[in-house]
Design a protein around this nucleic acid. Structure first.
Lengths: 348, 348
DNA sequence: GCCCGGTGTCGAATCGATTCCGCGAATCGG
DNA sequence: CCGATTCGCGGAATCGATTCGACACCGGGC
């Protein structure tokens, strides 16, 4: 069933059918109605490929997500969900591409052959060759995250430096003088994962500003790793009384590790960090944290992309969000001595 | 840059370029090399829309996921990830469509206009009009989940009836005689969500088989709801000593609720159910549960779909998985009396 | 009565790739 | 040495929709 079939049944030419659909030329009411009736009756929809071929655009965007092997964090899931929703509102389809490296087949397919009109890129590294590939392909794209050269692309990102800095200051205000940063996984850090490195920068800066000491830890993105990480921390650095983290996935493990060590939050130990908004509330006790508005970010990324798709010459905008630390129940004043501190110190 | 450009630069006709690419006709080594060099130099890729138009297929599949508003469970996330990965292996793109109801714009766009060659449908209800729509559209499709009429479509699903049945038997074997089922949300149940209803059937059947009593609860899909649900349960039914659940997302809340009530797992209370494989291990104590191999399911769904895409006349296969209950640490023998049982009974 | 502008419709070119048909040249057997 | 076969390649039609130029028709103004 194609436009010719509709035209034949309505007794008009194909162009007239096309014009009734697009409204780009006037069509008399009588003809329009006749055509519309046939269309409704047969449930005709113009073929997407033919339209894309002629118009030179596909009404589809690409969403590049972390590879399937790596489990998405809640925050990333929030990005995906809101991007998809925002795209649907703009009547755009979303093509998914799980891509880690650069010479990824899936990523190449996305760029080549004009499959998409624009791309949203997630999990960007400080040096990310995909950015160059997208620039060369002359495809409008927007990053959720950004590379080391901020102005080379259009993006929206969380200001991890500032936010972790604030977390540390908050902890320091409460009297904590030994603070750990639970960062993302070794692998992610090794590939130059932006948020991880920026969080570390903010952490180091805040420590210096307050003249206190800290421990900088890398931790896998799951509960088991969090448990192992915090257990090691308590053993190696028994004087640490608080952690800040950007590793959502490790949080349940961190909590469990503290529990197993007999430490109550926030009485004996404080936790804070940066997590997706809904997550902070689910925590017990509710997490004092910088709440990342994942839904907003996805929606805004889509808005930025739409802007560039309409006019690729739009100046490259950058949006940096530094959500304030929302005070909840997971941080408290430091205790001068932990209940069983002497016991713990013995083995070390 | 199109195939004509390549042909001109290589000094051959467009058809010869096409044949070198597809290999459907012999091309002399000299010509092939000349053409290949030009292609490599310019980085040419055939236009997807033009190819789709001519070939009549798009090399793209649609993946219908729950609407963005509803957060995906870990299991569903596993499905999505593995489907995307499997599709990438088969050199297929994945178009995402968040669709709850039937007259969803996003879903309609997927079906109409030949945008996809096949569809994988998630979160299927017992009566699901999307199935009819797909059948009418003559699109190959596979469900992860199935409707009330098992043979009307091709699907792969977890046998929730059997699995929850086994869970209850396992608990009964341990001496539990008052067991609760923590099901999915009221809304989901109201719309006829398959797994929820089938789990309930298995639960009711097992209770009858063992001559014991149970409580059937609906619970929202998040930790807060789980907490609220288990708190209510302990209050209203203080004699319940174990729960079985299909509600992954509520598990952290359930656990927290038990903790707050001073009940240790598995000493005072047993938990079991059906969850994604990786989840069971992350639990503390590790969850005795029927482990759903989410990755396998996604991959197998993709295999089923590929089968139907190659030959739509393939008989409709159904795959029902009933993973055995893996014994871990969250279930144990019932205690004749809970430590503080008399205390708890007083207020009721 | 003729011309002119506007309205509504149609025919045909176009987008980029695939593929059938057929032509010329090289190859082989008799 | 000639005719038949094979091989390599080019020409042209095709997929389904959009859109430009053109044309017929109609009413109004001169």
């Amino acid at each position: 069933m194609n436009i010719g079939e509709i035209a034949r049944r309505a007794g008009v030419s194909r162009s007239t059918v096309s014009y009734t659909l697009s409204g780009k030329r006037p069509v008399s009411d009588a003809t329009r109605k006749r055509i519309q009736d046939v269309i409704d009756e047969l449930g005709y929809r113009p073929n997407a490929a033919a339209r894309a071929l002629k118009e030179g655009r596909t009404r589809t965007i690409g969403l590049v997500i972390p590879p399937a092997s790596r489990r998405l964090t809640h925050m990333q899931l929030g990005f995906v969900a809101s991007v998809v929703e925002a795209a649907a509102r703009a009547d755009l389809d979303v093509l998914l591409s799980p891509s880690g490296g650069d010479h990824d087949r899936s990523f190449e397919r996305l760029l080549s052959g004009g499959r998409v009109d624009g791309v949203i890129l997630m999990e960007i590294r400080l040096e990310d060759s995909r950015v160059r590939r997208l620039q060369n392909a002359k495809l409008p794209f927007v990053g959720i995250g950004h590379t080391a050269r901020a102005h080379e692309m259009c993006w929206i990102d969380v200001d991890y430096t500032t936010v972790i800095n604030r977390c540390v200051h908050h902890l320091a205000d409460l009297g904590h003088t030994r603070i750990a940063l639970v960062n993302r996984s070794v692998e992610l850090m090794a590939t130059g994962y932006g948020p991880g490195h920026r969080a570390r920068d903010g952490f180091v800066a805040a420590l210096a500003q307050r003249g206190i000491q800290g421990v900088d830890l890398e931790c896998g993105d799951d509960a088991a790793a969090g448990l192992e990480c915090v257990t090691r921390l308590l053993q190696d650095h028994p004087d640490v009384t608080a952690v800040a983290t950007i590793n959502e996935a490790a949080l349940p493990g961190i909590q469990r590790g503290l529990e197993e060590a007999g430490l109550a939050v926030p009485r004996d130990f404080s936790i804070t960090g940066v997590v997706g908004r809904t997550w902070a509330e689910e925590f017990r006790p509710p997490l004092t944290a910088a709440d990342v508005p994942a839904d907003d970010i996805g929606t805004q990324a889509m808005d930025l992309l739409l802007e560039r798709m309409v006019d690729p010459a739009t100046p490259l905008r950058n949006i940096l969000l530094a959500p304030p630390v929302s005070l909840r129940g997971s941080t408290g004043p430091v205790r001068s001595a932990r209940p069983d501190e002497t016991v713990r110190r013995t083995p070390s």
